Amino acid sequence: MIDLKQANQALETDLHHKDATQIVTWAQATFGPGLILSTSFGIQSAVMLHLVTQVVPQIPVVWVDTGYLPVETYQFAEALTQRLQLNLQVYQSPISPARMEALYGKLWASQEVEAFNKYDYMRKVEPMQRALRELGATAWLAGLRADQTDHRKTLDVVTQQGDIYKISPILNWHARDIYKYLQAYDLPYHPLFDKGYVSVGDWHSSRPLMAEDESDRDTRFRGMKQECGLHLPQTPGEAESLDSSYL
């Protein structure tokens, strides 16, 4: 496997001029069986699921199921899994929703960012870290876009998160690019898109877009944060990386 310096050299000399499919092809050639794809089965998830599986049909697709997703998300996930014949790998927290609520209460209802961070670590970050370890992942394809959050504006197509390389093939796409791709391949948006949702996660922390919202991510986490922690640096300073200073 190449090191990050080599990956960055490839990026500087080649990938900046490649389209999303070519970047996925490069990632497969570079990282081979260590390459995985993550999905949330969110509003626009069909784009990355289709784009990547056209190049790597049997790539492990990691879905972190928090146990609090809307009914529509579970139905959307089932439909896309069948249509695209996904090699779906579902990961969940070892702490059930009922047990978590009994021990810690409804963390998402708190007015403190720290409570949200604790929730996100238990239900999302830990299961994803476990998935990366168990699947032997060396590189992770993700559908991050620079126009989604302040943190994502700082990313490159190839970055490093802990010991894992992160590749974001559609980092520089905009909403119109997503729409064109979905139309071109007759792919669906998440069902809640028709109800005004532009981003969807857990049922208790997602809502439709409102006129005063400045970004899609304002509709998540009651506007208290933009990132759940999955795409923030996982380092010894992890607590700091999940802090609101990253929002």
Rank of each mutant, 00 (worst) to 15 (best):
R83E: 09
K124T: 06
E112Q: 14
L88S: 06
N87D: 12
L37W: 07
E126D: 14
V55A: 10
G105M: 10
P33Y: 03
S45Q: 06
V64R: 00
G32Y: 09
V55G: 09
L132M: 15
V56Q: 00
I59P: 12
V113M: 10
D120Y: 15
V61W: 09
K124M: 09
L15I: 13
H17F: 02
T39Y: 09
H16M: 10
L15T: 14
D65M: 02
T66V: 08
Q75D: 12
T30I: 14
R123V: 15
Q75W: 02
L37R: 03
F41K: 01
A27E: 04
V61L: 00
Y74G: 14
T53L: 06
G42D: 09
A29E: 15
L37S: 07
T53H: 08
G136Q: 04
Y74L: 15
S38P: 07
D65F: 00
A131T: 11
Q89G: 06
L84F: 15
M128T: 10
Q82I: 12
F31E: 04
L80K: 07
H17A: 03
V125N: 04
I59S: 06
Q111T: 12
Y119S: 06
M48T: 01
V90Q: 04
P33D: 08
M48I: 04
L69M: 14
S96M: 03
L37P: 08
Y68E: 11
W140I: 06
Q28N: 10
M122K: 01
I23V: 15
T66P: 07
A131R: 13
F31Y: 15
V52Y: 05
A109R: 13
K118M: 11
T81G: 14
Y104I: 01
L103E: 13
D65R: 01
R130V: 13
T25H: 05
S96L: 04
T138N: 02
G42E: 01
Q92L: 01
V56T: 07
R133S: 13
Y91M: 03
T25C: 04
A20Y: 10
L51C: 07
V113R: 13
A79D: 09
H16Q: 11
W63K: 01
Y119K: 09
E126N: 15
A139N: 06
S45I: 00
Y74P: 08
S96Y: 00
L51M: 04
W140S: 01
Q54V: 07
W140P: 08
P33A: 09
Q82E: 13
D120S: 12
